[in-house]
């Protein structure tokens, strides 16, 4: 028996198990092989349920599990870190015909992936402006903390996420929304970004001064309130002065 044959039969229930696998008492070994089939499918489905609780709510448990069964066979985990399993789910959902009428699902999946990524990201000290001279603040070159990330969508993903986690029954708008995920302490939280927020975050990746970041943001989004954006990013612990590790 090769592991190739074993793995093929494991993921495809229409393939019989390899003939050299035996019931030690004689007779069929099908139910015995099914223990492995079941372990793989159930454990990976549970990993996806743990990682995408809002998708479970939006799709319903039964539909989510059926969808997970298709996904895990097409895209088993790339490595044993199950906490990162599902990175291909947004792309899968975008092409999955049964959910074509729910075009916001891939972005909700990205948001949930982002929250998990943030949860496990490296620790840094958040930028703290207390006691700093305003002119000195503008010369600082902070970066987005490793636990901070932005998810941009054409759909009201923040409203959808909120309505399915915190604010049951809350109204969901129709506008496009961009979400900033940050992690003050150990618990990641999403924040709705106002106009210019996406550009502000992107500009800060270039290690520019805060004054340059605000100017660039204004040039791209003249309607942006850059002072409020800076306040939001600082208050949510999105920024850090901790240098990037050299390794």
């Amino acid at each position: 028996m090769t592991q190739d044959a074993f793995a093929t039969a494991l993921l495809d229930a229409t393939t019989p198990h390899p003939a050299s696998l035996l019931n030690p008492f004689g007779g069929p070994a099908a139910k015995r092989f099914d223990v492995y089939r079941n372990n793989v499918a159930v454990s990976l489905t549970e990993a996806l349920e743990t990682g995408f609780p809002v998708l479970v709510k939006l799709l319903g448990s039964e539909f989510f599990r059926a969808m997970a069964g298709v996904f895990l066979r097409a895209h088993p985990p790339e490595d044993p870190r199950l906490m990162f399993y599902g990175r291909r789910l947004p792309g899968f959902l975008a092409d999955f015909a049964p959910v074509k009428h729910l075009p916001y699902l891939p972005d909700i999946a990205k948001l949930e992936l982002g929250l998990r990524q943030s949860y496990h990201a490296a620790d840094t000290t958040p930028l703290d402006l207390t006691g700093l001279d305003p002119a000195a603040v503008l010369d600082l070159r902070p970066r987005m903390a490793p636990a901070s990330l932005v998810v941009r969508s054409s759909y009201p993903i923040f409203d959808i996420w909120w309505a399915n986690t915190k604010g049951q029954g809350q109204k969901v708008g129709h506008s496009a929304q961009t979400v900033l995920i940050t992690r003050p302490g150990y618990d990641p939280a999403p924040h709705l970004l106002p106009i210019g927020g996406f550009d502000f975050a992107r500009t800060l990746k270039g290690r520019v001064t805060l004054s340059e970041a605000m100017a660039t943001t204004l040039a791209r989004e003249p309607g942006a309130d850059v002072a409020s954006l800076l306040t939001l990013f600082v208050q949510t612990s999105a920024l850090t002065l901790t240098p990037e590790p050299t390794t």
Partner: peptide, 17 residues
């Protein structure tokens, strides 16, 4: 046991002869 194959990580402790 084994758990990884060309197709990916199968998340179970699979048996060996």
């Amino acid at each position: 046991a084994w758990s990884t194959h060309d197709t990916g990580y199968l998340n179970d402790l699979l048996p060996l002869p």
